[in-house]
Amino acid sequence: MTTADLDPMLAARLKRTADGLVPVIVQEATTDAVLMLAWMDDEALRRTLDSGQATYWSRSRQSYWVKGETSGHRQAVREVRLDCDGDTILLKVDQTGAACHTGTTTCFDADLIWEQR
Rank of each mutant, 00 (worst) to 15 (best):
E28P: 03
L6Q: 04
T2G: 06
D5P: 03
T31I: 10
L91F: 12
A33L: 08
V26H: 02
S51K: 04
D5T: 14
K67C: 02
R47H: 06
Q95D: 06
D94E: 14
Q62N: 14
A29V: 11
V80Q: 01
S58P: 11
D50A: 08
L14E: 07
M40D: 02
C100P: 04
M1D: 10
T2W: 00
S60W: 06
V24G: 03
L6W: 00
P23C: 14
C100M: 12
R46C: 02
G68H: 09
H73I: 03
H101V: 03
R46M: 10
L45E: 06
R117K: 09
W39D: 05
R59L: 13
T102I: 10
L14R: 01
Q53K: 12
V22T: 05
L37D: 01
E28M: 06
T3V: 15
Q27S: 01
K15H: 11
M36I: 04
T30K: 13
R16Q: 07
E69D: 14
R78G: 12
L82D: 09
G72K: 01
D109G: 15
T88I: 01
A54W: 00
T55V: 15
L82V: 03
A12L: 05
S58H: 12
A44H: 10
L14F: 13
K15E: 08
F108H: 02
A44I: 08
S51M: 01
E43V: 10
D85S: 13
P23T: 15
D5F: 09
T70Y: 05
T31W: 08
T2F: 03
I25S: 08
L10Q: 07
D7F: 03
Q75G: 00
E43G: 03
A29C: 02
R117P: 04
K15I: 08
D83I: 00
L35R: 01
W57C: 06
R117I: 03
T3F: 07
D41L: 09
A99R: 13
T3Q: 14
A44P: 07
G103H: 09
T96A: 15
L35A: 00
E28N: 15
A29W: 09
Q116F: 08
D19K: 11
V22F: 11
P8N: 02
T96N: 13
A4F: 09
L10S: 03
Q95G: 04
L91S: 04
R81N: 05
L45K: 03
A38H: 06
I89S: 04
L90A: 10
W57E: 09
C107M: 07
